[in-house]
Write a protein that binds this DNA or RNA. Structure first.
Lengths: 240, 240
DNA sequence: TTAATAGTGTCTCTGAGACACTATGTG
DNA sequence: CACATAGTGTCTCAGAGACACTATTAA
């Protein structure tokens, strides 16, 4: 059958010179469990638009660079972090999301444990923030500084942050994603605290232990906690 | 604190003329439950690359067009469908996914009931295919024509189709997404058949009924089936 | 010994599967 | 009436919460 005019237009449309093209950036939501709540990194903008507002670390993609590679590069350049778990959240492309020109943003979620997160802020211009959240779904995120004062966000970055927390919560029970928020060796209670931090609610200790051990994803390292002032807990590692 | 060289580069980098830009397209996976399996639409390419291979309906985004609006336009132009449920699946951007030039594809999933799906093929160049799938996760999808012969797909469209089915399965139990695959009024058994089609496995009738009625999302229309040769089932509608 | 948390055994409650039974249409 | 599917009532089983109890370390 001959192609319809619509299809012909599509098939002829491969010459990119015929089309105006948008700019494409990646923005990274780095999440870490700290002091009982999720923290992230944002950068204060020094130029218009959204001057002095806070923005997610991001950057334009390069023409021969994979999207996830661009996110990893941003994380390396802005936070000094390498080898971090990354997952694509989605692409934000409202025509006026950036008032200057059409810029699409492919958003990524990056997960890191508290220790590496704390280390990466040293000598860097990044800021460290609290992301509170109530309810299983929640609305737009509020980002607070160390004094608990709300920090206004640039662009649609509040929406991106909200999506990141929602995605993380949704995957926590059904995938091993929670282990990305812990160091290599951890106790069952460490794991529970991470889950409680992400979900922002207390969990039942007994059934949490049973559920985690039943997954078969935990392997005892044979080691124990040390210097804890009480019975030391067994250490586990995430095994495939 | 003064911006670091990295941050300054980022902040200065907003002039898009400094950057080569990729082309951005949307591709739409239209899914409908038909004859006990999921079906989708693909279009046979008439030009290189991937000449005579099958491709998802797609098209380049326009500069003042929202991403989801572009997906809706593609669905209207290629399948004659309006007002269809759309959800973004993710963005595919491997540098060599299109051998001609850098083209990112923002993939969307579209859900439609069997009746509207069957109606939309008339007078159109689109093809109607079976998408089998075994196992809860599964690998790359195989697409079969009406004779059960595999249809080779262009670009990374097999991967996109796989993601669509996986996403639909994952959301079926936790969101009202299944109702998008049914007409306005349906029986509980219709709903069960849709779930069984999506998941590709049989479900327990009793607990499925209890579970669905317990959600509170079903409202009896007061009507019944007609001319069915047995006790007619009550009709329900999806209520918010 | 005491304090503090780790870890176990067991009861109960809830939701899913299984299955028997009743209800209501067509022919 | 027979037959087919709609829909209900109830038993059982598996997993989560609750809670009591034992274990092991530091001070």
């Amino acid at each position: 059958m001959p192609p319809s005019p619509d299809e012909q237009a599509f098939l002829d449309g491969y010459d990119p010179a015929f089309f105006e093209r948008p700019s494409v950036a990646v923005d990274v939501v780095l999440l870490a469990p700290t002091e009982g709540s999720l923290h992230t990194l944002v950068i204060q903008r020094q130029e218009h638009p959204f001057r002095l507002k806070w923005a997610l670390p991001g950057g334009f993609i390069r023409m021969n660079e994979d999207l996830e590679a661009a996110a990893a590069r941003v994380l390396r350049e802005k936070a000094g972090l390498k080898g971090i778990f990354l997952e694509q959240l989605g692409t934000f492309g409202a025509p006026k999301r950036d008032p200057r020109t059409r810029i699409l943003s492919v958003a990524y979620m990056a997960l890191v444990d508290q220790e590496r997160f704390s280390a990466c802020k040293a000598g860097s211009v990044v800021a460290r923030l609290v992301v509170p959240w109530d309810g299983e779904e929640g609305g737009p995120v509020e980002v607070l500084d160390e004094q608990g004062k709300p920090m206004p966000l640039a662009f649609d970055h509040a929406e991106i942050l909200g999506l990141a927390v929602k995605r993380l919560r949704g995957k926590l029970d059904y995938t091993p994603v929670g282990f990305q928020l812990l160091p290599k060796a951890f106790t069952l209670y460490d794991l529970q605290k991470v889950h409680e931090t992400v979900l922002a609610r207390k969990l039942n200790k007994d059934s949490f232990r049973r559920r985690m051990l039943a997954t078969g994803l935990l392997e005892p390292t044979g080691e124990q906690q040390d210097d804890v002032g009480h019975r030391p807990a067994a250490l586990y590692r995430y095994s495939a």
